[in-house]
Nucleic acid binder design. Structure first.
Lengths: 227, 227
DNA sequence: CTTATAATGTCGGGTAAATGACAAAACCGC
DNA sequence: GCGGTTTTGTCATTTACCCGACATTATAAG
């Protein structure tokens, strides 16, 4: 691929459409360009030079592992989304990392300080970015509430609905999702154990709401619309 | 109090120091000035005219109640802090409200749209604001991890340490906090029941780590530093 | 001081979900 | 195809915490 093309990857994100070509070049995404395959770890949050990443193709998860090896997944990042040190804060450490879920990903990235400089010059950009962070903040608040108020089954259903909305292809009476998540992955997202996730998925399948296999997930349309 | 003085309340927050007097006046905080007493509800998140609030004096909690009447407290706001529609997003509903904890509070506020307009003109402001929201985002991520990884006792201890850091007065071998929280309040913060919170507090008291009563909380300094 | 109200203390039973352990099935590289 | 590895299925046991109930104590209000 010609490197000229790589420069314009960021245009896929509405945040960067307000920028001129020269401004976009300031971010110097070429050096931050990379491809990855399933299982690769993209970054650790305590890296010396904080960056922001743009996912051009594929899907990744943002996770944290505690001292006992327990993992939770805080967010699934899809094609066209940003991740990394979005909070612009580099003082408080957190043990987050990003791992590739799909067979391959394409990523470009830029340094936090370059981005901040650009925002100083471009108030539009700063405001849009603030809203982007604000939205992610709000979504996490929502996950937090769900975790406290709802049981594992409800959280699973909620997740499946969200996944369908983000990633599903509608057919006549179903929504089909190309499945790049194991039941273990799903368990981490809804904050439960693998065994519980398995049981609940089978329970939902028995009830006729979905069909799960390693390749794809088919959700009953009625089921997704209700609840 | 002269209304001229009220205008400059916001100067207490470092976010607003970059602004000129005229710019600060644009926010029109006078109309949003109010005092409140313990138990008062300051705002609901689904209000028609979203605002951002600055807490000049006192302490409040940001909570959510679900359909069954269960409550969680997402954040304690102290003197000098901002709250309200900080995410700048008005599309997704969440049932948050703010309630006064201390005997009295002093608050000023301004409308979201005025603030956004100001950020458009003042990239510095937008950038600082993003960092502020980013920090809150990061703190919530931390609470989320704690909720999943740690048991109620650990979460209580973590909360007490945070509270001591924010609000405590150091003595020779203890940290004294003026107590404006009931055990029910604390339970909401650490996402457990009142009964569990009570048991854990008494357990910690029996172990000699603290002394809790309705007026004040005394934490053993060793205890706060360790763990 | 008296009484109402709110906050704290305590206990036993019930339960969702974790844990650990193992088997079966699906997938992948060769 | 075969053999190793990953993923999924199932179950019996344990546990942290919830839930409801009630007694006791502190605080506020008349």
């Amino acid at each position: 691929m010609h490197s000229e093309i790589k420069y314009w990857f960021l245009r896929d994100h509405k945040l960067f459409r307000v920028l001129s070509n020269d401004q976009l070049k300031q971010l110097c995404v070429i050096t931050g360009f990379k491809e990855g395959k399933k299982g690769d770890i993209i970054y650790f949050s305590d890296s010396k030079e904080p960056r922001i990443y743009f996912l051009k193709k594929g899907a990744i998860k943002i996770s944290e592992v505690d001292v006992n090896g327990n993992e939770i997944t805080k967010e699934i990042i899809q094609k066209g989304d940003l991740f990394g040190e979005l909070s612009l804060d580099t003082t408080i450490a957190n043990n987050e990392f990003a791992q590739v879920l799909t067979n391959s990903v394409t990523i470009c990235s830029f340094m936090l300080k370059d981005f901040e400089a650009l925002m100083e010059q471009h108030p539009d950009l700063a405001l849009s970015y603030t809203k982007l962070v604000g939205l992610k903040f709000k979504k996490l608040k929502n996950s937090y509430s769900n975790l406290v108020f709802k049981d594992a089954r409800s959280r699973l259903i909620q997740f499946l609905k969200d996944w369908a909305a983000r990633d599903g292809n509608e057919t006549l009476d179903a929504i089909v999702i190309e499945n790049y998540l194991t039941q273990q992955d799903i368990a981490h997202i809804i904050c439960t154990t693998r065994q519980t996730a398995t049981q609940l998925l089978n329970q939902l399948e028995t009830e006729g709401h979905l069909k799960y296999d390693r390749k794809e997930l088919v959700l009953d349309k009625q089921f997704v619309l209700q609840n």
